[in-house]
Computed example of a mutant assay.
Amino acid sequence: MTWNVYLSGEIHTDWRARIEDGAAAAGLDIAFTGPVTDHAASDDCGAAILGEPAERFWHDHLGAGVNAIRTRTLLEQADVVVVRFGDQYRQWNAAFDAGQASALGKALVTLHPPEHDHALKEVDRAALAVAREPEQVVGILRYVVAGELVKRAGA
């Protein structure tokens, strides 16, 4: 069985590549999906496809609608949803994806530094695991997909 893992959240660091590379190195049968990570394309897709509206407010709403087609479809198809909350920006869309995943009954893993624990307490409560580093997510995936437990150093 190929597992479908949706990687949601911040787009400014290499966390996705670290998870994908770690899963590939472990030989895991996983198909990774996620949002469009080209920030400009994601922001402008609605207006570029449907036409530029007169007000900026509608520009953002057009893009959000087009992006939601991808997000909703891939979240519904996911077996596991990993949501990364980074340091750089407020991650409202990531929190929304986590809520949708929880409402859909998806296995949810959050990924964030300890300093976000308080702000994300409700999101983390809905998650089945809270990871601090992408390599911990790989360990979780390795265990649930292949049944292989690899202890990390210091654990």
Rank of each mutant, 00 (worst) to 15 (best):
R125D: 08
A40R: 08
Q77M: 14
G65P: 13
G27P: 07
H116M: 10
V82G: 03
E76S: 15
D117R: 09
D44A: 10
S8H: 02
M1R: 10
G63T: 08
I19E: 02
F85V: 09
L74G: 06
R84A: 10
Q136Y: 00
T2N: 07
W58A: 15
H118Q: 10
V138N: 00
L104A: 04
L62H: 13
A155L: 02
Q100S: 15
D29F: 06
G27W: 04
G27M: 04
A64M: 10
G105I: 07
V145L: 02
C45I: 12
D87H: 12
D44L: 11
N67P: 14
L111V: 06
S102G: 14
E52V: 12
L104V: 02
G9M: 00
A17H: 05
S102R: 12
I49G: 08
T13C: 02
T2W: 05
L104E: 04
V66P: 13
H59A: 14
A126C: 06
A17M: 09
T13Q: 05
V80D: 03
I30F: 05
G65Y: 14
T110F: 01
L104G: 01
G22N: 02
S42Q: 10
G22H: 04
L75W: 06
A47T: 08
V150H: 01
L149D: 08
F32T: 03
H12L: 12
A95G: 12
D14L: 04
F57A: 15
I19S: 06
G51V: 05
V137D: 00
E122F: 09
V36E: 11
G65W: 08
K121W: 10
V137Y: 02
G46S: 08
G154Y: 03
V138T: 01
W3I: 03
G22D: 06
R132T: 04
L62T: 08
D79A: 13
D29S: 11
D38E: 10
A68R: 13
A25G: 07
H116Y: 10
P35D: 13
D21R: 13
G63L: 09
V123I: 12
R142C: 02
V80S: 05
T37Y: 08
P114H: 11
D38Y: 08
L74M: 14
A78P: 08
R56E: 12
L75T: 09
G51N: 07
